[in-house]
Design a protein around this nucleic acid. Sequence first.
RNA 1: GGGCCGCUAGCUCAAUGGCAGAGCAGAGGGCUUUUAACCCUUUGGUUCUGGGUUCGAAUCCCAGGCGGCCCA
Length: 493
Amino acid sequence: MSENELEARRTRLTELRERGVDPYPARVGPFVPVEDIHAEYGEKTEEELEAAAPPAAAVGRVRAVRSFGKLVFVGIEQDGVALQLSARKTEVPEDLFAAIKGLDVGDFVRAEGTLWRTKRGELTLSVASLDMLSKSLRPLPEKWHGLQDVEARFRQRYLDLLSNPEARRIAIARSRIVSACRSYLDRDGFLEVETPALQPLYGGAAARPFVTHHNVLDQQLYLRISDELYLKRLVIGGLDRVYEIAHNFRNEGVSRKHNPEFTLLEAYQAYGDYRDMMALAQGLIREVAESVHGGLVFESQGHTLDLSGEWREVSMRDAIREETGIDVLEARDLESLRNAAKQAGVEPGSAPTWGVMVDDLFSEHVEPGLIQPTFVTQHPTELSPLAKRSSEDPRVVERFELYLAGMELANAFSELNDPLDQRGRMEDQQALEAAGDEEAQPLDEDFLRALEHGMPPTGGIGIGIDRLVRVLLDTPSIREVILFPHLRSEAGT
RNA sequence: GGGCCGCUAGCUCAAUGGCAGAGCAGAGGGCUUUUAACCCUUUGGUUCUGGGUUCGAAUCCCAGGCGGCCCA
């Protein structure tokens, strides 16, 4: 009889039920994690195990069935750790032997028996009883090559995790990196908080939002592009050190550097400024890198990155001037900046405003070359509507962006706490929006009211977690570090 | 948004205008130390979709879908 695999597995499922076996039982009998079994018996010799015949019970997913005539080996895996099961036809009841031979790759089982070591030296559980824990109806990807199809890896990440060790390694490492960030901030007296993802008005970053609608309130809502304005409200409310690790949503392109939904760590420290945030960024990123690499020098994106020593600091003005010869603070409007670019032999592009053009010049000519950790400081005020002006030069703000491996990893400033200046900046943003800047920030009366009540001098920082993970784990695309990256819908679904 | 590349069995891949194939997985058989087990037999196809060219299309052309890379 010829059957396809799905049918064959469904048939075996039916047979289990006919024999009175629940293929999806509610409870699991006692067991010891496979990892612990190896820890306890991994060093025992063949003879020691034979003498003691230690009893053990394990659970896991069937990854291989190797059947001989009167002997069968089954490889199971629990949470990434493998254990071999065995059964001899001459030593176990007939129905148990049949049940073991009838296992499919992908089934979950619990096995009880005694441990022994094979001629090849593998610790093996000789099965005396077997419970089906969950019957699998679909085959896993091919055991040797794993799942190669990139689209399938993202759409069915569970298969990627099961068959590609690298996917599992990245998922676990990402989780540990986020834990390390939390641990650093918690130790430094920061309080982890949660603020709304659904916001009546978006703000805190230059980006276009996703728009949604609340039916009962008949209210337009935005998915947050940042949690900045809410975290500042908390500082105003007397929570001096707060942070949030949040998903933000920005309605823009999808690429190997961008996912529309991404993770940002934002932290705010009352009575601090952007210099304190520099120290925080350096301390946190160094500690996290140590936890991943055991040191501060590592390979990433084809470069050897060195996080030790003093990190370079350069003003945005100097950085652009070094690469292009253009002094953006000497060309204060769009027209003269375009002329300055032409004079310098630089394509002026089609930016709608002066600020956007400065940003474009930086992104194109400076950013890709910032490989080693670099603080870029003193951004033009027009580009930074939420940052405090520099006391030395009101044309620029107290701000830095941290670059590593050609990517922006963090953005921080001395937060603007002058409510009148803040109102003026938001009004300027309205003018920029009118001039065609689609990422200009809206005027937020509710936030301004909060500021008018008084906010202490505050330093704030945002760190892109996906990018940090990508740099530390050296993956070519942000999609490798996001478990379920955004994809178009499959045809027909 | 543009350019280039890809999409073939559940998975990994062949077939460069002339019979759609292999390995793994599945089914049947054999096998008491395997671990990518092995040996024999064998099932399985909307070749992404829809048009077109041709005696004949997985292959060439057009449109679309999804993905990748590069660019914007």
